[in-house]
């Protein structure tokens, strides 16, 4: 390697050998009245192309805050987030977020316009092409019939489908999902998980998915990062590519769930050691 400059190696070998998204030693803080609270501390993980990467942890582990940092809404106080080797400096249409809340859709646009609007205003496509792409992705999430409806006429599950279609229509480098199904009823949630996996089979997008449900993590993800709370620190990274929604009852699935439960909730000496670094 002496003959080549290090810079050119870093640039050319990107797509194949380096992760798509790298979170490197990220510490996040937020301002509360009169004090600054540390939400996460020195968190690192890598996401590769077509990953379904899960951030899992109890409430207070900063997983949503981490997602917002990847989205560029919050700047890390230490460390950095690299997308394709370039640091993330602010929100942008290459990292589209699907939020948990149903009020993420502008109420003044029809379902079709909602999906086409960001494609158009981010300057990717013209008006006509954006609408065509919106129709394409609305068909993928099964909402073609409701293209001209306004969001207030939709159920919660349908609103989340629109949000997913909108995110997919942007064809982002990473799709960020912040507990997208947490506000849905259990039956709708299960159906949405199935549909998300089918969409991934179809489109092969890269996904960063935040959840607090162990079962959802195992079924939806192919790799799970476990975070310990107060502040959020890396606890483990686990492979879960062998599970899907059908494997819920199997004993291997159950033991994997038990293992995660133990990692998340059992007090371990390792947790206190990481404070000393």
């Amino acid at each position: 390697m002496d003959g080549t400059s290090t810079a050119s190696v870093g640039n050319t070998s990107h797509s194949a050998q380096t992760p798509l998204l790298a979170v490197e030693g990220v510490t996040l803080e937020y301002v509360a009245p009169g004090r600054i609270v540390r939400a996460t501390q020195n968190v690192s993980f890598d996401i590769w192309e077509a990953d379904r990467f899960i951030l899992l942890g109890a409430s207070g582990c900063g997983k949503s805050t981490l997602l917002k940092a990847v989205g560029g809404f919050i700047a890390p106080s230490e460390g950095q987030v690299l997308l394709d080797g370039r640091p993330v400096t602010g929100p942008g249409p290459d990292r589209v977020v699907v939020f948990q809340e149903f009020d993420q859709l502008p109420l003044w646009k029809t379902v079709r316009e909602n999906v086409a609007f960001p494609v158009r205003v981010s300057g990717r496509l013209g008006r006509k092409e954006a609408l065509e792409r919106a129709d394409h992705y609305l068909e993928k999430v099964g909402l073609s019939r409701f293209a001209e409806a306004y969001p207030n006429a939709l159920s919660g599950g349908m609103k989340q489908r629109v949000a997913i279609a909108r995110a997919l229509a942007m064809e982002p480098r990473v799709l960020l999902m912040d507990e997208p199904f947490a506000a849905l009823d259990a039956l709708t949630r299960r159906k949405m998980q199935e549909e998300l996996l089918a969409l991934w089979e179809d489109v092969r997008f890269t996904l960063l998915f935040v959840t607090h449900s162990i079962e959802e993590a195992l079924a939806v993800g192919n790799r799970i990062a476990l975070l310990s709370p107060h502040p959020g620190r890396m606890r483990a990274e686990i492979n879960s590519h062998e599970w899907d929604l059908q494997s819920g009852g199997s004993s291997e699935f159950q033991s994997a769930a038990t293992r995660i439960h133990r990692l998340l909730f059992d007090e371990t000496p390792g947790a206190t050691e990481s404070d000393h670094e």
């Binding site: 917002k68 589209v96 977020v97 809340e101 859709l105 960001p118 205003v121």
Partner: peptide, 28 residues
Amino acid sequence: PETLRMTGRNYGLRGLRYVFLILVPAAL
């Protein structure tokens, strides 16, 4: 709503475009 604001910023909207395309209709 904060979510809607973040959505608008996620689209890459800034300044007057952000005010006219997101804030004004949402606050109508």
